[in-house]
């Protein structure tokens, strides 16, 4: 069992996301992360899903996804050379007197941006692979993470290769 990153090109129609996600839950798969948005082609969306399973399970889920009429292409890019990114917004407890400086120092190391400050909190914005965001939020835990919002992972192949329709 390991995490797989699936890049799914779908027609951008009402209900298509529930078709895709419904299929995962119906077949007993947990979605670890999900990101959806429009893409280079008009009328299409790209869904990036991270899910955990053994090879046979992932193969089955991909085949089932391919059967959805509005799914144009499904690729498991886990083994391909790719770049992955996630965006997180983290609101950390940070009193001006005590930990604020430390939090800002940590943010600096992770190249996170401070996007909001209040009397009791600092809000950071950070981009990077999943592990980087995990590491940052773990470090910040000691100060008190008030709220953590992650976009879910998106991924793109390196070089000239693309995940586009061949159907």
């Amino acid at each position: 069992m390991k995490a797989h990153t699936l890049s799914i090109l779908v027609e951008n129609r009402a209900g298509v996301l529930s078709r895709v996600t419904g299929l995962f839950s119906r077949r007993g798969f947990n979605i670890e992360s999900l990101a959806v948005g429009t893409c280079e082609e008009e009328g299409m969306s790209r869904v990036t899903i991270v899910c955990i399973g053994d090879d046979a399970q992932i193969e089955q889920v991909m085949k089932q996804l391919n059967k959805l009429v509005e799914v144009i292409k499904v690729s498991d890019i886990t083994e391909n050379y790719h770049v992955e990114r996630e965006l997180a917004l983290i609101k950390v407890a940070a009193d001006p007197g005590s930990s604020r400086a430390e939090v800002m120092q940590i943010a600096d190391i992770f190249r996170a941006n401070v996007i909001d400050v209040s009397s009791k909190t600092i809000t950071l914005e950070v981009t990077g692979p999943t592990q980087k965001i995990d590491a940052l939020s773990n470090l910040l835990a000691q100060y008190g993470v008030k709220e953590l919002i992650r976009t879910g992972k998106i991924a793109i192949l390196r070089g000239t290769k693309t995940v586009i329709s061949t159907k």
Binding site: S18, R19, G22
Partner: peptide
């Protein structure tokens, strides 16, 4: 009904 029949139709349309 399109929601209800999602897992038991090959496809459905509203």
């Amino acid at each position: 009904i399109t929601g209800i029949t999602l897992p038991i139709t090959k496809h459905n349309f509203l």
